[in-house]
Computed example of a mutant assay.
Amino acid sequence: MSASATAAASTDPKSYKFNHTMIRVRDPKVSIDFYGRNFGMSVMRKYEFSQFQFDVYYLAFDGADAQHHGIPWYKREGLLEITHNYGTESDAEFKGYHNGNSEPGRGFGHICFSVDNLQACEEQLLNNNVKFQKKLADGRQKDIAFALDPDGYWIELIRNKEAPAPTEQSKVAHYRFNHTMIRVKDIKASLDFYQNKLGMKLLRTSDHPNSKFTLYFLGFDPENKCAENSGEGVSDREGILELTHNWGTESDPEFKGYHNGNTDPQGFGHLALSVDNIEAACDRFESIGVPFKKKLTDGSMKTIAFILDPDNYWIEIIPQNELPGMPLLK
């Protein structure tokens, strides 16, 4: 057996975590205040990359009732990474980031929090002057809402069906960073990638024939708690990926594909997996034909890699430990 094959055998996809979703923000102070004050998220870690003129902050639900309370940030799911490129907050010429829901730049769709009481949550957010893309009363779907963060990113709000019975107030202790949505061109290729290459399980499917799209919810399930495509307990989970497939894109010769957010117009940056053995995991990905945007040996950051999914979205690969050599500030 080759050295590469030996290394590949020493990584277990069942241990992988859908660790975080990265978005770029104009002003980190404003964004951290927004997610903390309105949703109860706190900063788990901050890394400073002054040589590259940016910082990153990892936010998560971390109260006593949080799903991953007490677990180190790199071994948990449901983190939001906000990236701040120095100077955007004070640059009068900066036009802001793209939220991924209009052309050009359509691809990433939203993040989603599941909450204990949708109506109370919406009312509390409105009282805090949070803007909405869609309120509960708008449109045909009365069981979801979309709030807007300071950069215009959409935050879907759904009911956490596993939370305690609703009270008159919505309690952030019961909130979960449930999922991240991206649009995909060819659902067969995407399901093959996320299930067979990354090791995720299909947790739930939702068909919308009137609007000609289907939603696929995937996540890691190492303890096999959720039956395949059953939807059991999904609303109480964190670390779910929603793939949205608009029917016909896979066979439309005029469709040019989705935007991954890393060229103009920028906004969303990447998804991220934390893995048990990063060298072995990267060897495994390479051996099964997964394309890389950045290998471990590329560039100056030798502790992270980036692979590409079938739609060219970036997926960061990080180790399940503090990033060695990174300038940790918190």
Rank of each mutant, 00 (worst) to 15 (best):
2 S>E: 13
3 A>R: 09
7 A>D: 13
10 S>D: 12
11 T>E: 12
13 P>G: 04
14 K>E: 12
14 K>W: 00
16 Y>L: 02
17 K>P: 03
18 F>N: 09
19 N>T: 06
23 I>C: 02
25 V>Y: 00
27 D>M: 09
27 D>V: 09
27 D>W: 05
30 V>Y: 00
32 I>H: 03
36 G>A: 06
39 F>W: 13
39 F>T: 08
42 S>K: 14
44 M>C: 05
46 K>S: 11
46 K>R: 14
52 F>T: 10
56 V>R: 02
58 Y>C: 01
59 L>A: 06
60 A>E: 02
64 A>K: 14
65 D>M: 10
66 A>Y: 02
66 A>W: 00
71 I>T: 15
73 W>D: 03
74 Y>G: 07
74 Y>V: 00
82 I>A: 00
86 Y>N: 11
86 Y>P: 02
88 T>P: 00
88 T>N: 12
93 E>G: 11
95 K>I: 01
97 Y>P: 05
103 E>K: 12
103 E>I: 06
104 P>G: 08
104 P>Y: 10
106 R>N: 12
109 G>R: 13
109 G>Q: 11
111 I>Q: 04
112 C>N: 15
114 S>I: 04
115 V>H: 04
124 Q>D: 14
125 L>E: 13
135 K>L: 14
138 D>P: 12
139 G>F: 07
142 K>L: 11
144 I>D: 11
146 F>I: 06
147 A>E: 09
151 D>P: 00
151 D>T: 04
153 Y>Q: 04
158 I>A: 12
159 R>K: 15
160 N>M: 09
161 K>A: 12
168 E>T: 14
172 V>Y: 10
172 V>C: 10
173 A>V: 10
176 R>T: 13
178 N>Q: 13
180 T>C: 07
186 D>W: 04
187 I>Q: 06
190 S>P: 04
190 S>K: 06
190 S>F: 03
194 Y>G: 12
195 Q>T: 14
199 G>W: 03
201 K>C: 09
201 K>R: 15
202 L>I: 04
207 D>I: 07
208 H>T: 12
211 S>P: 00
213 F>W: 15
214 T>N: 13
216 Y>H: 10
218 L>N: 11
220 F>M: 05
221 D>G: 12
226 C>W: 09
228 E>L: 06
232 E>H: 02
233 G>S: 03
234 V>P: 03
236 D>R: 05
236 D>T: 00
236 D>E: 08
236 D>S: 15
241 L>M: 07
244 T>N: 10
244 T>I: 07
248 G>D: 09
250 E>K: 14
252 D>C: 08
256 K>F: 01
257 G>Q: 01
257 G>A: 00
257 G>V: 08
259 H>S: 06
261 G>H: 01
265 P>Y: 07
269 G>L: 10
270 H>I: 06
272 A>I: 04
272 A>P: 01
273 L>Q: 09
275 V>P: 01
280 A>R: 05
281 A>K: 06
285 F>D: 09
286 E>W: 11
286 E>C: 05
287 S>K: 12
289 G>F: 01
294 K>M: 05
294 K>A: 08
297 T>N: 10
298 D>L: 07
298 D>S: 09
302 K>H: 11
302 K>M: 01
306 F>G: 07
306 F>R: 08
308 L>Y: 03
308 L>V: 10
308 L>R: 14
311 D>E: 05
311 D>L: 03
312 N>R: 12
312 N>M: 06
316 E>Q: 15
319 P>R: 10
319 P>K: 07
319 P>H: 07
320 Q>K: 11
321 N>T: 14
329 L>V: 15
